[in-house]
Simulated scan of single mutants.
Amino acid sequence: MADNQASGGTRPFRFGVVAPLRTDLPAWRDQVRLIADCGFSTLLMPDVQQWQPAPGPTLAVAATLADLRVGTWVYAAPLRMPWSMSWEAHSLSVLTEGRFEMGIGTGRPGIEDELRELGLPVETPGERLSQVRDTVTALRELDGPDLYTPVVMAVRGPKALALAADLADTVTFAAWPGDTRATTMRLAADFRAVRDVELALHVPVVGDAVAPFMTPPDTDPAALRAADSLLILPSDPAAATEEILRRREDGGFSYFVVGANAVDALAPVVAELTGH
């Protein structure tokens, strides 16, 4: 079990990029190297069969291309047996020499249809949470005393939040349409009252650019700005820097995850804030 004691203090910033392999392989390799050169700490893969090669081998390749951490953003627990998911996560930690972090959740909205198409059981939310717990438990057993794979959990409801308080090293809150700044900040404050861990923000929109694979393509940046949503950042580096600092001050968020299409816009921000 992860340490449940509050660490205190201000966590340093780090930045991750969701960058599935959707181009030819040489172009994607160049993209991975660019992400590292721009100072981003972590390269992340979604877990959707139709979008890219499987996360495990893709992340193993990415880790050989640059000095980056790699991770899943996030494994959908219903798609695999816990022993299979934990074995893959442990193997990635071994192969990357400790640079892998396992992101895991109970599945995005609409995953029930995908489960039916794959011939997999459609289980209840409670059963999916049990799969998450079983996966992390099996991962800790495989890691043993000499390896520790960080666990990132995407959560929302009270039972998921309670499980994250027991198991997670990093927590991100699954967003709902219409979530305002106040809503997300309240989730952060309530969670931090129970346990102080790294808090991550999933930010699929920078300026007017919507990141593929992080949010529906019909997402309206103007509507997010009107709602004062934390799903969007300004494209202007100075404004983005100010906003990111505010989000850490007000909510404790120190890990920001964006799409690959935002790398150039946020590179100056990452250079200024990483590690501070």
Results as ranks from 00 to 15, higher is better:
residue 21 L to G: 04
residue 72 T to E: 02
residue 117 E to Y: 04
residue 179 D to I: 10
residue 89 A to Y: 05
residue 131 Q to I: 07
residue 64 T to H: 01
residue 197 V to S: 02
residue 61 V to P: 01
residue 135 T to A: 14
residue 35 I to S: 04
residue 273 L to M: 09
residue 23 T to P: 02
residue 205 V to P: 03
residue 75 Y to R: 08
residue 129 L to A: 01
residue 171 V to T: 04
residue 119 G to W: 01
residue 179 D to G: 11
residue 123 E to W: 03
residue 39 G to S: 10
residue 68 L to E: 07
residue 89 A to T: 07
residue 148 Y to H: 15
residue 204 P to L: 02
residue 154 A to V: 09
residue 121 P to K: 12
residue 18 V to K: 08
residue 223 A to H: 07
residue 127 E to R: 15
residue 225 R to H: 08
residue 233 L to G: 05
residue 15 F to N: 08
residue 81 M to P: 00
residue 231 L to T: 06
residue 145 P to N: 12
residue 45 M to D: 13
residue 31 Q to C: 01
residue 155 V to D: 11
residue 194 V to P: 05
residue 220 D to Y: 06
residue 212 P to T: 11
residue 1 M to N: 05
residue 138 A to Y: 09
residue 93 S to Q: 10
residue 100 F to H: 04
residue 25 L to A: 13
residue 51 W to V: 15
residue 64 T to S: 14
residue 30 D to W: 06
residue 141 E to M: 09
residue 185 M to H: 14
residue 150 P to Y: 13
residue 203 V to A: 08
residue 62 A to V: 05
residue 131 Q to W: 14
residue 77 A to E: 11
residue 129 L to V: 08
residue 152 V to A: 12
residue 228 D to H: 11
residue 151 V to M: 08
residue 217 P to M: 08
residue 149 T to F: 12
residue 228 D to Q: 10
residue 5 Q to N: 11
residue 202 H to E: 04
residue 27 A to I: 07
residue 207 G to C: 09
residue 253 F to I: 14
residue 255 Y to S: 14
residue 56 G to M: 03
residue 222 A to V: 10
residue 161 L to A: 13
residue 17 V to M: 09
residue 260 A to S: 15
residue 66 A to M: 03
residue 87 W to P: 00
residue 123 E to S: 12
residue 37 D to F: 00
residue 62 A to G: 05
residue 180 T to N: 09
residue 47 D to W: 08
residue 132 V to F: 02
residue 66 A to F: 02
residue 257 V to D: 00
residue 124 T to I: 09
residue 179 D to R: 09
residue 99 R to M: 10
residue 272 E to M: 05
residue 72 T to M: 15
residue 56 G to K: 00
residue 201 L to E: 04
residue 225 R to D: 04
residue 128 R to A: 11
residue 105 G to L: 06
residue 255 Y to L: 13
residue 5 Q to G: 07
residue 109 P to D: 02
residue 160 A to K: 04
residue 14 R to H: 05
residue 184 T to N: 14
residue 1 M to Y: 09
residue 221 P to F: 01
residue 72 T to P: 05
residue 107 G to E: 07
residue 258 V to K: 01
residue 61 V to Q: 10
residue 57 P to S: 00
residue 174 A to F: 11
residue 43 L to D: 06
residue 154 A to F: 09
residue 239 A to D: 15
residue 57 P to Y: 01
residue 70 V to C: 05
residue 2 A to M: 14
residue 74 V to F: 15
residue 39 G to T: 10
residue 231 L to F: 06
residue 226 A to W: 08
residue 257 V to G: 00
residue 94 V to H: 03
residue 147 L to A: 15
residue 264 D to S: 13
residue 171 V to L: 02
residue 153 M to F: 13
residue 189 A to V: 02
residue 112 E to R: 09
residue 234 P to Q: 02
residue 82 P to W: 10
residue 230 L to Y: 03
residue 57 P to F: 00
